[in-house]
Design a protein around this nucleic acid. Structure first.
Lengths: 368, 368
DNA sequence: TCGCATTGGTAATGCGCATTACCTATGCGC
DNA sequence: GCGCATAGGTAATGCGCATTACCAATGCGA
């Protein structure tokens, strides 16, 4: 008998002092002298004024009974019956939970948590069940998220097929990060385009006309957006946007050498911008190359970073660029998800990145 | 009608191509030409040879049907019906996603995840609903963990009353960290007593007799254990274990000054050990004080750390001490939890900490 | 005085699944 | 050829809750 695990005593005596099993609504009802249905109505009282059908007196009796019994909802039953249990899921496809503060998702999670708390939701965190987890293989991989009312997905590794399935089933899903290729998938993202353009415009205002973007050979939307913003900015300010304006390299450290930088500068380039990525490779390479080339910054060349520097380079000269408002992104994602759960059709705009003046940009040097 | 959210078309036609709702076992059954019960039997086939009641042919038909429909269990229903859904919960009570850089359960989680995966469990992470979360206040705070088959609790902040309640309800619970005051609560912990004693004995073997323990004024079991091991070690080696042997201070940085250290050394103390805590305050203070006092280590004084140094001090002189096997602790906790879920009575022993020779201990200096 | 709306509450139902009691062939020994 | 065991499967039930259809009592206008 499995249920022996749930009810310690199959035949218990409800009146006696020593209880041994979690109370059900039925027991609360008995104690309050009402029906189970009434208990449910009282305890799930949605603040929607709609349910004025229980008298205040009865309400109090039920609440007292529930309190004295220490009643707590069974989340599984709640979800099964009503398709609502006030829980929001967060799924990250990393091997382990991204609770390590070093982890790049961490800042998002902080925002997610705050917003969820503010809206009265509890959170449940799922991970991509690294190796041999139960659902690791099959389409079950994502099925656990159905424990929650809706789910937020982090990271570009979220498999499209699975997500599509959830969406098709009408399960509320929000993806954190631009994800337009999946029809019907809700997402929130940072406005890298505008932010990148702003950096270019800042450099242009300082007098730069020949600016080069160093980016990795990744095709992530985030990279594409930055490049687009960069080119738009260049065009807007009448800068030179020839094919040489973008340095796309699979291995930034190998491609962006001191020599290369020196050559470009000699050719008239006065400023460089790098995209931010997980590894920060582009910025790292650019920084090293400039330094090694013996160029002073921002004396000889100006540098811009389309994002935030990696933690280990956060010190000293703060790069001119922008900050991705990760907390706000997380919060926006939760807002959107909450709206979907509530059946609304809300749409979250792109979240604006904040320009960071920094100390790596100045007027162009006076090299020929 | 709420269910319109679950079933896109109340009256759907099972044969037509465009499906729009997640399939149930009933639909799989229909496709396979069997009953829902059969589908359940096949799909939940426990490897326990017990269930040989379905013919191989039927089994295959069901499996095929399930696959072609992309069937996936509903975790909520599963849990409700069977009290099992193959999920283990992990509850961390620290400020939900700890903003304190030092304070991360990450290493534990790594072990937890590996072991869970190895045992075919999926994980769900709950957090301490820091601020105004839904269940933040009431006894509901922990009720969500019932979504899982059992739950692991991290951190000393897990409220006893709630835990007791879960245990009393027969819900499988394991606490990571010693927790003996709660009758019936299963836990796993590191053997700080033995490990601390070993450090003292190591110092004693080098010739030290006057050793002082610097600890915080916390009453956590982990602190008490270290002190106990320290005193036991001192007693075992015939060291001087007077009341001055333990420096218990609320504010290590303020209490353990260069002067204080100098005075103690002048008084004949040749070695110090500090306990490890979240913040590493004790070790930090000791390290700074010794350095500031102009004492060389291990030339003038030997130092020991009952645990691991905080990340920012991990460099250079590796402290003599021990390492808490966090991965193994996490794994042990999962093993224990799995046993409880399975209804067994398993008991996990304390996990042994590994001695770390380090470079901060040597023979006593030759001060008078 | 009757009809009708409103208030306050309840019985019944079903969510999706696991489980169990039970039923129907077969096979087998004697 | 009969009784009985066994394999293979199914109908029915309930987990704990939200929801809905429905019912009883009361108020109120005409």
């Amino acid at each position: 008998m499995e249920q022996s695990r749930k009810r310690a005593k199959p035949g218990r005596n409800p009146g006696s002092g020593s209880r041994t099993s979690r109370p059900r609504q039925a027991e609360v009802a008995q104690l309050a002298g009402v029906s189970q249905a009434t208990v449910s109505l009282v305890l799930s009282a949605r603040s929607d004024g709609k349910a004025a059908t229980i008298s205040e007196e009865t309400r109090q009796r039920v609440l007292d009974a529930a309190r004295s019994l220490g009643y707590a909802h069974d989340p599984a039953a709640r979800r099964l019956a009503a398709a609502r249990n006030n829980l929001l899921g967060v799924f990250s496809f990393t091997a382990t939970f991204p609770t390590d503060v070093q982890h790049s998702y961490y800042p998002f999670l902080v925002g997610v948590e705050q917003e969820a708390a503010a809206r009265g939701y509890d959170l449940v965190l799922f991970t991509g069940s690294s190796s041999g987890g139960a659902g690791a293989a099959g389409p079950d991989a994502l099925s656990r998220v159905r424990l929650a009312d809706g789910c937020l997905f982090l990271g570009r590794h979220a498999p499209g097929a699975e997500l599509k399935r959830l969406v098709a089933d009408g399960f509320p899903v929000v993806h954190l990060g631009r994800r337009e290729e999946l029809e019907g998938l809700a997402w929130v993202g940072a406005d890298y385009v505008s932010a990148s353009r702003a950096v270019v415009e800042h450099l242009a205002a300082l007098g730069h006309r020949r600016i080069v973007l160093v980016r990795e050979a990744d095709d992530a939307p985030a990279s594409a957006d930055r490049q687009r913003g960069f080119l738009e900015g260049l065009a807007a300010v009448g800068g030179e946007a020839g094919p040489g304006a973008v340095l796309r390299c699979a291995d930034p450290a190998g491609a962006v050498t001191a020599e290369r930088v020196r050559a470009l500068v000699a050719d008239g380039v006065t400023a460089f911008v790098a995209e931010e990525t997980d590894t920060g490779a582009a910025w790292r390479a650019l920084d090293a190359a400039v330094r090694e080339a013996g160029l002073s910054c921002p004396g000889d060349v100006s540098l811009g970073l389309l994002g935030s520097p990696p933690p280990d380079l956060a010190a000293a000269p703060v790069p001119t660029g922008f900050d991705v408002p990760r907390h706000q992104l997380g919060a926006a994602a939760v807002r959107l998800l909450a709206a979907l759960v509530a059946g609304e059709e809300a749409q979250e705009p792109l979240v604006v990145c904040e320009f960071r003046t920094g100390a790596t940009a100045g007027p162009p040097g006076r090299r020929p």
